[in-house]
Amino acid sequence: MTGKTDSKQKQDRPVILITNDDSIHAPGIRALVEAVSDLGEVVVVAPDKPQSGMGHAITIGFPLRLVKAQLFGNGVESYHCSGTPVDCVKLAVDKVLHRKPDICLSGINHGANHSINVIYSGTMSAALEASIEGIPSLGFSLLDPSVEADFEGARKYARLLVESLLHKKLDKHLCLNVNFPAVPADLIQGVKICRQAYAKYEEDFEERKDPTGKKYYWLTGEFVNFDEKPDTDVWALANNYVSVVPVQFDLTNYKLKETLEKQLHFDA
């Protein structure tokens, strides 16, 4: 009788899919697994190498490898994939879980994904892919790119957010972009629901020469914020709050759509 009860309890626990873009070996994904491993049945499917800045890229024309790994212990099933973060989500649903998980978590990314970074981020693209598939998702990022970053505060607030959401009826397309300030846990002021700040990178391609004398270019740049209002993710993080921005895959500009419908008229 006990065996049947244990089996039912296991089936009743939520299935949590975890992925990232820094690779399955990154400290950030380990911190996320540790934060939520007792909240459900955790399955990790993550890239076998760093995939930062891949955006929503998928692998076409090349085979994908999916290899089982034993990296996390505590009953956490894990796989590393030769593809992109989006590939990982697709393969996890189709070939590993054979079902949609209850929630998908991506991260914890080493480095910021606030403001315009969401467009380029492999971390957030994995979360958005889950949202497209009707899986509520969160992408987590810490504003410290170092492999030796302190994830204590990020672990604490990631767990609080996931635990809270697992007890609520969620919109299947929920996708939250969560960023943590790079400060000790006791200096984090709390959580703010924000909008994405208007900012961009002022980029420059530095011209260099390789040992053979041939030119190559190295991307450099500076993050410039044009939006100082206190309801943005950039403001929240600068003031030591965890920023939470609801994002979506529908890129339609509805306000502009209404304007164009009034302004543009074409004869058939």
Rank of each mutant, 00 (worst) to 15 (best):
S125K: 05
S125D: 03
A127T: 06
A127E: 00
L128D: 03
L128K: 06
L128M: 13
E129M: 11
S131W: 00
S131K: 00
E133C: 00
I135N: 03
I135A: 04
P136M: 01
P136H: 01
P136D: 01
L138H: 00
G139W: 00
F140D: 05
F140Q: 05
F140P: 07
F140L: 05
F140G: 03
S141A: 15
S141H: 07
S141P: 10
L142H: 04
L142Q: 03
L142G: 08
L142F: 08
L142N: 03
L143S: 09
L143G: 06
L143H: 07
D144H: 09
D144I: 10
D144G: 11
S146L: 08
S146P: 04
V147I: 14
V147K: 12
V147Y: 12
V147L: 14
E148D: 14
D150T: 08
D150W: 10
F151L: 03
F151W: 02
E152M: 11
G153F: 09
G153A: 10
A154Y: 01
K156H: 13
Y157V: 06
R159G: 08
R159T: 09
L160A: 13
L161E: 02
L161A: 09
V162D: 07
E163M: 05
E163L: 02
L165C: 09
L166N: 04
H167M: 11
K168L: 11
K169N: 09
L170M: 13
K172P: 06
K172L: 04
H173V: 00
L174Q: 00
L174A: 04
N177W: 01
V178F: 03
V178T: 07
N179F: 07
N179R: 00
P181T: 06
P181V: 05
A182Y: 06
V183M: 12
V183H: 09
A185G: 02
D186W: 08
L187Q: 15
L187V: 08
I188M: 03
Q189M: 13
G190W: 07
G190N: 02
G190D: 04
G190P: 06
V191E: 00
K192E: 01
I193G: 06
R195P: 04
Q196N: 07
A199I: 02
A199C: 13
A199E: 12
E202Y: 11
E203T: 15
D204V: 14
E207A: 12
E207D: 04
R208N: 08
R208Y: 11
D210K: 06
D210Y: 09
P211A: 11
P211E: 02
P211L: 13
T212W: 06
T212N: 11
T212K: 11
T212L: 14
G213I: 02
K214S: 10
K214Q: 08
K214T: 04
K214N: 12
K215V: 10
K215P: 01
K215H: 10
Y216F: 15
W218K: 14
L219P: 12
L219G: 14
L219D: 07
T220N: 12
G221D: 14
E222S: 15
E222C: 15
F223V: 04
V224K: 15
N225S: 15
N225M: 04
F226Q: 09
D227S: 10
D227P: 12
K229Y: 11
P230F: 08
P230C: 11
D231E: 14
D231S: 13
T232I: 07
T232W: 04
D233C: 07
D233Y: 09
D233I: 01
W235C: 06
W235E: 00
